[in-house]
């Protein structure tokens, strides 16, 4: 008689918190259920409380892996980007989250791992390892990686310098990357505020691009960072103009910034 093949879960001997902290995580019915329910709740909340408007949804590739890159001013950025993905991609979308912030206390680990499905990114140490995790995510077809290349939430609302990690990850790979811009998140829920206030959110998704032609290296990484930041800045201008058009006249000076 042939022996049965058992594939025992890798994290069997770990506590629940340890299991949530590790990456990749084993699929779990309960976690998937809670995540799906909270996604529905979050989508409704973003629509009603924040009047989320999305343009450029047609740019999202119907299948295959891709990367979303956006400006970062608020936790709403992550929730907004997650909410535009088709529900069937919910458990395959991984926002990279600062491990030193999201994976340190039990409530934050629970939210990051269960609700957001975050990938723990170590931005101070082991950056190489974290980038390798990101690479692994992109190897499996159908995964979505969400990156905020500024590396932290902006405290002024302005778009900061893009850290080279995103460039190192993308140079020489044919995974499409979509620049995105979220407007209104800073006003609704900036870094200093405990809870969000109601405020309109506008999200623009740019056209996909890829950097398969570039030789991986520092040079290419810096080039990609500059180009992506430029793309996000252009989307920002577009986003604000569209917003002002809807909300009535504004003074000229504000439109320029």
């Amino acid at each position: 008689m042939n022996e049965w093949r058992y594939e025992t879960a890798q994290d069997l001997d770990q506590t629940i918190v340890e299991r949530l902290r590790r990456f990749p995580r084993e699929a779990d019915m309960l976690v998937y259920g809670i995540r799906a329910l909270s996604a529905l709740g979050l989508r409704a909340w973003l629509r009603i409380y924040h009047r989320l408007e999305v343009t450029g949804r047609e740019h999202l590739p119907p299948d295959g892996s891709y990367v979303l890159v956006a400006n970062h001013t608020s936790h709403l950025d992550t929730l907004g980007l997650l909410s535009i993905l088709p529900l069937k991609r919910l458990h395959r979308a991984f926002p990279a989250a600062a491990a030193d912030y999201f994976f340190t206390s039990v409530p934050r680990i629970a939210i990051a791992a269960v609700v957001v499905n975050a990938l723990p990114f170590y931005r101070e140490v082991h950056i190489r390892q974290s980038l390798n995790l990101c690479k692994q995510v992109l190897v499996n077809p159908g995964n979505v990686l969400i990156l905020f290349p500024e590396g932290t939430r902006s405290t002024t609302g302005e778009i900061g310098v893009f850290k080279p990690g995103v460039g190192l990850l993308l140079a020489g790979t044919d995974v499409p990357v979509l620049p995105c811009h979220i407007d209104g998140a800073f006003e609704a829920w900036p870094k200093q505020r405990l809870l969000p206030r109601p405020g309109r959110l506008r999200l623009v998704i740019g056209a996909p691009r890829n950097y398969a032609a570039l030789q991986p290296g520092k040079e290419a990484a810096l080039h990609i960072c500059r180009e992506l930041r430029q793309a996000v800045l252009e989307l920002a201008a577009l986003n604000r103009r569209a917003g002002f058009r809807r909300e009535g006249p504004v003074d000229q000076g504000a439109e320029e910034t």
Binding site: L12, Q14, I16
Partner: peptide, 12 residues
């Protein structure tokens, strides 16, 4: 038969 020590780590 499965080659594991405990069935889980739920109860310290």
């Amino acid at each position: 038969d499965l080659g594991i020590k405990d069935m889980g780590a739920t109860i310290p």
